[in-house]
């Protein structure tokens, strides 16, 4: 498969608030320290729109905003891939609680926000993008599945793609049924052609399982990587931050691994 180029990266997690702030930690120059997330107030959403959204939507839009920083309004109108394992836990919980009643009164806004592509819909509205957008899921391998879908679109649809991988802990009792311990979101702006802003090239291949999964030496980051399905992308994000040629291995659905060759451009 031909390589694709990473032009920008975004990140949002406890203690990792944006690529510029987080880069030194991800590169291993600083030890990771968790910290409460700042309030989610993405400027891309007008205040009246923001009030109608959920944390899940605001979080994904914040990651998309960080990943597309520096782009003009027009160049932000990109094709998008949103990858999330558990969708919007809070809205799911609210609707489930309501429909468990004998005469449910579901909020219409909550219902239309409950579709898995709600975050994608709000982002497309915020930037005015009519480009294709897809939203994928693949349990713990959602980061690998999202990356594969985004790279396929870059290579075959001749377009730049904004990939957003994101998951939040769900409220109880859902979180006990599927424990996610920390919020995590990462984004990549992927291109088919190398440019002055390219950070690195990624070459993807699927291989039979057997190779061990890439892990992280910083124990705090490694815990984060395991605490949230979207954070399985951290091994790749950290490899890019280190700016050295390497290969990252991500498990892919039991029978295969996704091998990602990382080649710095600088």
């Amino acid at each position: 498969m031909n390589p694709v180029y990473v032009d920008k990266i975004g990140i949002l997690a406890p203690g990792l608030t944006g690529w510029e702030q987080a880069r030194a930690t991800l590169a291993g120059h600083r030890t990771y320290q968790s910290a409460p997330l700042p309030p989610l107030k993405p400027a891309a959403l007008a205040p009246d729109v923001r009030r109608r959204t959920s944390d899940h939507i605001r979080f994904a839009v914040e990651v998309a905003t960080d990943t597309s920083r520096g782009l003009s309004d027009v160049t932000r109108r990109l094709a998008t891939v949103f990858a999330s394992c558990d969708a919007d836990g809070q809205i799911t919980h609210d609707i489930l609680t309501e429909v468990a009643k004998d005469t449910p009164q579901v909020s219409p806004t909550r219902f239309h926000n409950s579709v898995n592509n709600a975050a994608a819909g709000y982002w497309c509205m915020a930037v005015g993008s009519q480009q294709p957008s897809t939203s994928v899921a693949a349990w713990d391998d959602v980061a690998a599945a999202g990356l594969l879908e985004a790279v396929a679109q870059v290579l075959l649809e001749h377009t730049r793609v904004l990939l957003v991988i994101h998951d939040l802990p769900m409220p109880e009792p859902l979180n006990s049924a599927r424990p996610v311990h920390a919020a995590f979101g990462a984004g990549m702006l992927l291109s088919r052609a190398r440019s002055a802003e390219s950070i690195c090239a990624l070459a993807l291949e699927l291989a039979p399982s057997g190779e061990s999964e890439s892990t992280l030496t910083d124990s705090g980051l490694e815990t984060l990587r395991r605490d949230n399905p979207a954070a399985r992308s951290l091994a790749l994000i950290c490899a890019i931050a280190r700016n050295q040629a390497t290969t990252v291995v991500m498990p892919f659905l039991g029978h295969q691994v996704l091998r990602i060759g990382v080649q710095p451009c600088a």
Partner: peptide
């Protein structure tokens, strides 16, 4: 089956 897979959930 053991090939690549994903769920697409766009309503």
């Amino acid at each position: 089956l053991a090939g690549p897979a994903a769920t697409v959930s766009t309503a």
